[in-house]
């Protein structure tokens, strides 16, 4: 704010440091301008948190429209277009049905192994896709970031919403898939409880993506690392196995228990495949982790708001 305080010494002195190289004897003229930095806004400066949240709320129409439009054009380069939003998860399910349901007939002791994998993959891939997309959003949305001044968190939210809409279609078609591809899963009211699990997972994705975004913007190489880390995370979240069957060490089981994405998989399998309510501790772990990650992620993203305009 007080950048000009140091150059108050008299109107006669040469203005900027660049004026010093004048070869002629005459002192360069200066034009004195008075301004009140408090009455103006510093361009590109990060607003206080409350103001930032208000601006974010103010851009909700932009967020909603941007998310809708992004979803609508996401498959525009294909012939089938929007049908891919539904076809992708169905084809994923069919792949595993062919391998494990028709060819191998193995389930390693897990009942309806095809449904176990397909549901788990659909849930996990939502997080890995969304977290990576949000963490890269400052680079991928460069055109919008360059073009308009809006709180940058709005862009992350619109990406999260686009992914959430995609996932809603995917989940819907996977549930239909489970109802028509053998072995059939009986429909149950507990399926409805997938909605809060999905909502908490979405909050987690947004927060985690925002937490990573500043670092990914500073060091673009991290984006390449991230997809591998997410894959590592996927395999250690019991995507193809039920950890309680393999692990007896209490400490390792605790690691699984406090892994929010493992909880997402375990809870959705409880709700859909076993028609039973997940343990309260599962709800607790997922809610706390999501909220914590969201708050930390949002603060980290906001703190670095100015850095997204740095030249890369």
């Amino acid at each position: 704010m007080s950048t000009t305080a140091d150059q108050v010494p008299g109107p006669g002195t040469a203005g900027g440091p660049g004026a010093g190289d004048g070869s002629t004897g005459a002192a360069p003229a200066t034009r004195v301008e008075h301004f009140d930095p408090a009455a103006m806004t510093a361009v590109g400066a990060r607003p206080p948190l409350r103001e930032y949240v208000r601006e974010l709320w103010g851009s909700r129409h932009f967020i909603a429209y941007d998310a809708r439009v992004r979803l609508a054009v996401s498959q525009d380069h294909t012939f089938l277009g929007k049908a891919w939003i539904v076809l992708n998860p169905v084809l994923l399910g069919l792949t595993f049905y062919v391998i494990f349901g028709l060819l191998l007939h193995t389930g390693r002791g897990i009942e309806n192994f095809v449904a176990f994998i397909v549901l788990g993959l659909t849930m996990f891939m939502y997080s890995s896709r969304s977290v990576v997309a949000v963490s890269r959003s400052m680079a991928s949305g460069k055109a919008l970031v360059r073009g308009f001044m809006f709180p940058r968190a709005a862009l992350t939210l619109s990406i999260v919403m686009r992914d959430a809409l995609t996932q809603a279609y995917a989940l819907g078609s996977i549930l239909v898939f489970l109802l028509i591809v053998p072995p059939l899963e009986p429909i149950s009211w507990t399926w409805l409880l997938l909605i809060p699990v999905f909502a908490l997972q979405t909050v987690f994705n947004w927060g985690f993506g925002m937490l990573l975004a500043p670092a990914v913007h500073k060091i673009p190489d991290l984006a390449n690392m991230l997809s591998f880390l997410m894959r590592l995370w996927m395999y250690s979240s019991g995507i193809f196995y039920d950890p309680s069957r393999f692990v007896s060490d209490e400490r390792i089981l605790a690691l699984f228990h406090f892994n929010p994405l493992y909880q997402v998989l375990a809870m959705s399998r409880d709700l859909v495949l076993r028609a039973q309510l997940p343990a309260w501790s599962s709800w607790g772990v997922l809610s706390c982790a999501s909220l914590l990650v969201f708050v930390v992620g949002f603060l980290a993203f906001w703190r670095n708001e100015e850095s997204y305009a740095d030249e890369r």
Partner: peptide
């Protein structure tokens, strides 16, 4: 450059 009218800011 030596003749340019420079702007001096005062807060």
């Amino acid at each position: 450059m030596s003749q340019v009218v420079r702007t001096e800011l005062r807060e």
